[in-house]
Design a protein around this nucleic acid. Structure first.
Lengths: 150, 150
DNA sequence: CATAACTGGTTGCATAACGAAACCAGGGCC
DNA sequence: GGCCCTGGTTTCGTTATGCAACCAGTTATG
């Protein structure tokens, strides 16, 4: 069988999903962005089975999204911290969060929010913009496929 | 067993992933955004097994991301078209695409790009902004968790 | 109008991924 | 040294995935 891989495909979305497209990876990254570092912290926060967590952490390290380093508290354990590549997933998480907030909650239902540290205000909804600054919707864009590499 | 569900969880990211977090769903939405409508079109574009595709389409319809409608060409078949909820996934796809483009390709490797229809220019990199317009990184935000609903 | 071919699926089966729980090794603590 | 905690690995049963075969309704063809 084999779960289909998108490694050779030219669509960047597919390539991304190849790396972070499984269920837990993005949630791990999300927790890492909010400061978690230790195996046990992730396990407690996510409630995921330990074998799955170990597997995902290894996967994320292999793909350069997390890296291991000696624990900051002087103990002999190691910590998982985000690389630059991992930190740059931030807009994806914000986009997912904003969409989920709008479409996956009932009106009064309590939810976690992302706030600007400086003023405690929610962040602005993400906008896709053209080079000249115009806000774009899906109708305003087109895909450019590279020529078949003969 | 049961693949863990995040339905009761307060994190919007988790809720989103509950709906669109599996491997194929976002790719289907991506193709739908670029204009595909018919079962056969999706199948050809994605190369996915037909049973999986049928299952995913049903899932996306159930969650209100796609809806079925009679074919626009007058034939008796039906088409799958995006709802407003589905169209609003656009920033997520752009975010995934931009990240994948930066981090999952070799330097000269050809890739599909999203261009502004009006001028043929690539869209701007997404930016997370505060209410007052400042660009925010992950260090500039914090999470507000709602009080435990006692 | 009969029939061939296409679209849009469903069913069955083999295999890989997932999940829970048990197990285990090394570290830290007394 | 004995005991518990952290951070995993192993084992095993269940679920999801992928392929291929099959099938009904629709459209094209003669």
């Amino acid at each position: 069988m084999k779960r289909t891989s998108m490694e050779g495909v030219m669509c960047p979305v597919a390539r991304s999903l190849d790396v972070i497209g499984d269920w837990w990876s993005l949630l791990i990254v999300r927790d890492a962005q909010s400061g978690l570092r230790r195996f046990g912290e992730f396990q407690k926060s996510l409630g995921v089975a330990k074998n799955i967590l170990a597997q995902r952490l290894r996967h994320l390290v292999e793909h350069g999204i997390l890296e291991t380093q000696p624990a900051s508290d002087g103990s002999a354990w190691q910590e998982y911290v985000l690389t630059e590549k991992g930190r740059s997933l931030f807009p994806i998480l914000v986009a997912l969060g904003q969409w989920g907030q709008q479409h996956c909650f009932e009106a009064g239902e309590p939810r976690t929010r992302v706030l600007d540290k400086a003023h405690g205000q929610p962040v602005k909804p993400l906008e896709v913009r053209a080079a000249d600054g115009r806000v774009l919707t899906v109708q305003d864009v087109r895909l450019e496929r590279p020529p078949p590499q003969g």
